[in-house]
């Protein structure tokens, strides 16, 4: 059984169709890269996966771990092991970063019928994960994403992923905003997380990231659809020639 199976998915926003017939199958142990021009609907697809209420699915299906994902609300999807690394993580002033992470971690434990972790034990776990993604412990006491730079926000997303240890992670342009050193550290963290039981979807514009995290499949996204799929060499070709040739090729 595949981990995730998207079939002919159509989705949009207030009557405008943005995702126009996406089919994609992802098995445990795989890394998929999704590349494509701005505005083609990549973030929309990822938010639909996470269950964002502003987007409406008009056609198609998403099966996750054998279950109809569209039946689940966002909270249930997260508890079922889906993690969304947002392109633009929202700022939440007043809410402590570490406390937020503990809430999320404990929500997961509770849903599995396990005992919650107390702040001290969680703090230990958090220290370890922060080291993994190269984050200064001072970010524990900051308000969630509040006043974080673009790169800090992205790191914080990876930190959350490391803490929550999902089955399927979707990282939406996590690399943009990270400097080379940070990109390296974060990629190492992600690589350590990858195993045969989980899967990763990387949405990115840059080949750069794919040097660090090797994709098994590369998909070119355009006009709300997957226009072309291939292996990691496709990414190299895109780097050289841009997206236009794929768009032209598929139009013919």
């Amino acid at each position: 059984m595949s981990l995730l199976e998207i079939k002919d998915l159509h989705a949009g926003f207030e009557g405008t169709e943005i995702v126009k017939g996406v089919s994609l199958t992802i098995n445990a142990g795989e890394v998929h890269a999704v590349m494509g021009p701005n505005g083609s609907g990549k973030s929309t697809l990822s938010k639909v996966l996470a269950g964002h209420p502003s987007y409406e699915v008009t056609q198609g299906s998403i099966i996750y771990k054998g279950k109809d994902l569209l039946e689940l609300d966002p909270e249930q999807r997260a508890l079922a092991g889906i993690f969304m690394g947002f392109q633009y993580p929202v700022e939440i002033p007043g809410v402590n970063n570490a406390e937020f992470l503990r809430l999320a971690y404990n929500a997961q434990l509770v849903s599995k019928g396990e005992e919650e972790l107390d702040p001290l034990d969680f703090d230990e776990l958090l220290d370890e994960k922060m080291k993994l993604v190269g984050m200064d412990p001072k970010y524990k006491d900051r308000f969630l994403n509040d006043g974080f730079s673009g790169g800090e926000k992205k790191k914080n997303e990876i930190l959350q992923m490391a803490v929550l240890n999902p089955s399927l992670a979707v990282l939406d342009e996590t690399d943009s905003g990270l400097d080379i050193d940070a990109l390296k550290v974060v990629s190492e963290g992600v690589n350590k997380w990858i195993n045969k039981d989980n899967a990763l979807i990387l949405i990115t514009h840059y080949q750069r990231l794919l040097n660090y995290i090797q994709p098994d499949f590369v998909h070119v996204f355009g006009q709300g659809k997957i226009l072309k799929s291939g292996d990691k060499n496709l990414a190299l070709e895109l780097e050289k020639q841009g997206y236009d040739w794929v768009v032209t090729e598929t139009a013919n």
Partner: peptide
């Protein structure tokens, strides 16, 4: 300030219930 739908969605996308999310934001405030 404003408590927005996107903020609550962010919590939910981490498995935190809406109720706990509101509570966390309000407590912070």
């Amino acid at each position: 300030s404003k408590i927005s739908e996107d903020q609550l969605f962010y919590f939910e996308s981490r498995g935190i219930s809406r109720e706990n999310a509101i509570q966390a934001v309000i407590n912070g405030f």
